[in-house]
Design a protein around this nucleic acid. Structure first.
Lengths: 115, 115
DNA sequence: CGCTCTCCCCTTGCGTCACAAGGGGAGGGC
DNA sequence: GCCCTCCCCTTGTGACGCAAGGGGAGAGCG
């Protein structure tokens, strides 16, 4: 009943990261923490998953990175949501919900054709 | 507003295929058709996606294949859900819904900490 | 009889991605 | 001085969705 082994994180991770920085800049480590908290520890992403994803999003211009100091006085790279990133987050969320709704309906279907 | 380009089909496809054959044997082509219908044409999977997936599921013992004749009198390979396949479908569906619920909650979150 | 259309099967190659496993540096308490 | 936590990164590997290819066999139609 703990973390899900499900590998369907695919495609959802980017959205979650964008969401994590949608209220202001956050550094990578904090992004991972937020995702963990926000999903009730259901989704724990490793650093080998997180950082490549952040770099990917940066390369796509969806987030912008800048070095700074964390609350604990540690050097950290802060990521901020760009304008296109925000649009992407909205569009992506919408797509995501539609996809999930469609698939969920199919998975809950009772009969083959119900004819 | 048509088909979704989203690549988060990852991990969901297997479940949909298992569901498609959960009411009795179905051949590959028909599986793809059912998924299309059941998702309101939101999810249209190509043959290059479908067949490898079917073979994968067969290799894992979740479905069993057998040659037969389709409604149109064509030679076709029918896939039937095995016992372990059915268990997998139930467990997978449950995991899927929990995952989706957790991620959905995070994506809909209003504030960072609401503190 | 040939033609074409639909149905139904398959494979190879490519790009992407989650993940495990590795490595490093710098602050702060003891 | 030591270790723990925080915070960054990379390389390699396996898995997978997908486009693009190829083929064969039934059925309507001229």
């Amino acid at each position: 009943m703990d973390e899900l082994d499900v590998s369907l994180l695919r495609g959802t991770l980017d959205l979650l990261i964008l969401k994590a920085v949608s209220w202001g800049p956050r550094h990578g480590y904090a992004v991972a923490e937020w995702i963990g908290e926000a999903t009730g520890e259901s989704l724990l992403i490793g650093e080998g998953t997180l950082y490549p994803a952040l770099h990917r999003l940066e390369r796509q211009g969806l987030v912008e990175a800048e070095w700074g100091l964390s609350d604990n006085n540690r050097t950290a790279k802060f990521y901020a949501l760009s304008r296109t990133g925000r649009r992407r987050l909205q569009a992506g969320s919408s797509s995501w919900h539609r996809f999930v709704e469609a698939a969920g309906r199919a998975l809950r279907a009772a009969g083959p054709v119900t004819a």
